[in-house]
Design a protein around this nucleic acid. Structure first.
Lengths: 226, 226
DNA sequence: CCGTGCCGTGACGGTCTCGTGACGGTGGAC
DNA sequence: GTCCACCGTCACGAGACCGTCACGGCACGG
């Protein structure tokens, strides 16, 4: 579900990283150069970026700095050089972590999870399960419980609920939800949000006509009651 | 002066870490056991925690989980074991980073800086809640409390209250309020403000006939009493 | 005491937002 | 190819909300 961007010039490593991390549930794009990586990221920001340091053309440090100027996306350096000087330079440039090739996929994946947890706003420890009244949300497992019964949500409904949960208690406007759930370049009809909120309510509210979890704030948007 | 807590049982390593990181500008406390670390953290939360994994008594994993339950303080593991399994377990337990001894102080310091940057960025910036007498205003949540009971405001009433709150104690003329709340550049009817002030008072004043929060300043406008 | 502004409030019609049902398109599973 | 879950668009009704108006009360200066 989270969108991952890999910037790595070695085809074999790029492919193996891609396959390994797709297995971990990421939606992966991969490019061989910093320039392409920046273009991709500008077009559709990723939730995580993996970047090599030694790249043809613009190098990894420059790439990191450029991405930092665009936003605060978590950046992990994957480098062949196990050198303190490089580590410090990369972190100073704005990277969040630095792992040395050859990477253990399990470790990389754990580091990505830790980073995402930390980067995603209020980042509470490692609950992996969040409660909002009767709703129990398990993002890792991709499942939701109402009371103790399973409810099946579609992908869009699930992402919608997750976004609301990440900012629970705070109002999110329709435009914000469009950006976060559907993507950044959508200028679609904001009523689309209403429809999916309605569908979501039918599944996670005891009385969908009088929602207690997914609450409308008239004129502003929606929020998830804490 | 960020406060750093070191939990490490080896006296020599603990001392050298302490000295090195004090040089980097941290205010350091150090303890040799997880139990003491937790007690210290409970007594006065640190901004960063360094923890060893192999500790006498309660081990590092337990220590991390316990601290996670207390809050979202950034935690870095400093361990002698360079083992993927340990790294994954520590990160899953809630750690943010994992470095292997012997540590390069420059790298550790850079990692701490990167982590602090990340943790403070997404952490709680402003309290986002303002009090005026009995009124509690939460712009993020789009909600207002009078005492401890929720009051429902319409969008216009909410904006009106926010504008008054932004300039609390100072008088705002009807024209200023029209400009800020309604965005008019036209000279609309100033009586419109009166009507909404009246409606607002009915909701946020115990005795709307004798308002103590939203106060009229005859001939000038309105202000929000501090 | 009186008049003149200034302010508070109730009522009302128009407008806008939101919730929902219906429908056609699509992409993946088999 | 066929089916089915899911998605996005649309239209419509209900209710919330807004802005206007008119009326009455209250604070001032004379």
């Amino acid at each position: 579900m989270p969108r991952l961007l890999i910037v790595e010039d070695d085809d074999r490593i790029r492919l193996s990283l891609r396959l390994a991390l797709e297995d971990e549930g990421y939606t992966v794009r991969d490019v061989p150069t910093a320039e392409e990586g920046l273009a991709e990221h500008r077009a559709a920001p990723a939730d995580l970026v993996l970047v090599d340091l030694m790249l043809p053309g613009m190098d990894g440090f420059e790439c990191i700095r450029a991405m930092r100027r665009l936003g605060d996306v978590p950046i992990v350096v994957v480098s062949a050089r196990d050198d303190t000087h490089d580590v410090v330079a990369a972190l100073e440039a704005g990277a969040d972590d630095y792992v040395v090739k050859p990477v253990a996929v399990k470790e990389l994946s754990a580091r990505l999870r830790a980073l995402r947890r930390r980067a995603s706003g209020s980042g509470e420890g490692a609950p992996a399960v969040r409660r909002f009244g009767e709703i129990e949300l398990r993002p890792e497992a991709g499942e939701v419980l109402l009371g103790d019964e399973h409810v099946h949500l579609t992908r869009t409904e699930f992402r919608l609920l997750c976004e609301l949960a990440d900012q629970s208690g705070r109002v999110l406007s329709r435009q914000q939800l469009l950006n976060r759930v559907w993507g950044y370049d959508v200028y679609g009809d904001e009523r689309l949000v209403d429809v999916h909120v309605g569908r979501l309510r039918r599944k996670v509210e005891r009385d969908p006509a009088n929602p207690v979890h997914v609450v409308t704030v008239r004129g502003l948007g929606y929020k998830l009651a804490t």
